[in-house]
């Protein structure tokens, strides 16, 4: 809920009552969506409200990002939103149905990456018209790198776990 409230920027310069109302709505939404899902994911349903309920943690994090994009947070608030979002994602991983706690190394790396990007983004620099194009190119390259990292090639048949598949 703190993440959502921060993302709405309740002390925004213009339209403070609007921001406050948004914060109140965000608190209500967070009350429903924030607790990590502890039930095993069942078969996917075609109904929208069931899908929303099933992915409400994801929806909350995404809504927080969108709210942060729409508001104009100050530098310290942007840092707080980044930290809160990362903390929420790690908490959901650790407390959800399958309990996938992230190791300390991965947490440190994620925090460092976020801090590095945030520091680079908040550093005053001269911009040109091609900056957005360059950023898009950089994001595409990063996406390609992530895709390569996740690519599962024709391996995986090495015996590692000591539980072989008999005769197959």
């Amino acid at each position: 809920m703190a993440l959502l409230v921060a993302a709405t920027n309740p002390r925004g310069g213009e339209g403070v009552p609007l921001h406050l109302a948004g914060a109140v709505l965000a608190v209500g939404f967070g009350w429903w969506a924030a607790p990590p899902l502890t039930v095993r994911p069942g078969p996917a349903s075609a109904r929208l409200h069931l899908q929303l309920a099933r992915h409400r943690n994801t929806v909350l994090a995404t809504v927080a990002v969108l709210l942060a994009a729409l508001s104009h947070p100050s530098a310290w608030l942007a840092a707080a939103i980044t930290a809160l979002l990362l903390g929420y994602l790690l908490r959901v991983d650790a407390r959800s149905h399958v309990h996938l706690p992230t190791g300390p190394g991965a947490i440190l790396a994620a925090c460092a990456a976020s801090a590095l990007v945030l520091a680079a983004a908040l550093t005053p620099a001269q911009t040109s018209g091609a900056a957005r194009l360059l950023a898009a190119f950089g994001i595409a390259v990063a996406a390609g790198a992530v895709g390569l990292a996740l690519h599962h090639g024709p391996g995986g048949r090495r015996e590692r776990s000591g539980h072989p598949v008999d005769g197959r």
Partner: peptide, 24 residues
């Protein structure tokens, strides 16, 4: 707003570090 990329950096790093490689 470039600072929003900071919100993407953390999750991306978490995904990349959890990638199982060829052990699946």
């Amino acid at each position: 707003r470039p600072w929003l990329l900071a919100l993407a950096a953390g999750p991306v790093v978490l995904v990349v570090l959890a990638a199982p490689g060829r052990t699946r």
